[in-house]
C-alpha cells in the first residue's frame, strides 16, 4: 500500500507542475509525432490535474525518460507501465519524451 501511495502522490505533484507548464507553453509547438508517441494519451490525457493517471503533455522530457528507464529496469513500482516501457528503446523513449514535452 505504501508503494501505491507513493506513486499516487508523485502523480499528484506532477500534475500540478503540468498545469503551470501548460499555461506558459507556446500553443504552436507540436511537430511530427515519433513512433509510439500518440498512443500515450489513451491513458495519459492532457490537462486534468486530479487524474489518477498523470498527464504527460508539457512535462519535462528528462522526467519522462528517467521514469521510463526506471520502469524498464524495475526500479520504479508499476502496474502496467513496466510492461509498456519494455517495448521501447532508449532512443525511441527520448524521441517520445521530447515530443510529449512540447505538446500543449
Amino acid at each position: 500500500m505504501a508503494r501505491l501511495a507513493s506513486v499516487l502522490t508523485m502523480g499528484g505533484m506532477m500534475s500540478v507542475a503540468v498545469v503551470v507548464m501548460v499555461k506558459t507553453m507556446p500553443a504552436a509547438a507540436q511537430g511530427v509525432a515519433p513512433p509510439g508517441a500518440t498512443s500515450c494519451s489513451g491513458c495519459h490525457g492532457p490537462g486534468v490535474s486530479d487524474a489518477a493517471v498523470p498527464p504527460l503533455h508539457g512535462r519535462p522530457s528528462e522526467e519522462i525518460v528517467a521514469a521510463m528507464q526506471e520502469y524498464r529496469n524495475g526500479r520504479r513500482p508499476a502496474t502496467v507501465m513496466d510492461r509498456v516501457a519494455k517495448g521501447f528503446t532508449d532512443e525511441e523513449t527520448r524521441a517520445i519524451a521530447s515530443w510529449l514535452s512540447q505538446q500543449p
Binding site: 501505491l4 494519451s41 489513451g42 491513458c43 495519459h44 486534468v48 489518477a52 493517471v53
Partner: peptide, 23 residues
C-alpha cells in the same frame, strides 16, 4: 499480487475510460 494492486488497476480502468472518452 496483493489486493491493493488489483484495486489500483480497477482505479486505472475507470480513469482510462474517462480519459479516452474525453479525448
Amino acid at each position: 499480487a496483493p489486493p491493493s494492486f488489483r484495486a489500483q488497476e480497477a482505479v486505472y480502468a475507470e480513469a482510462w475510460f474517462q480519459t479516452i472518452a474525453r479525448e
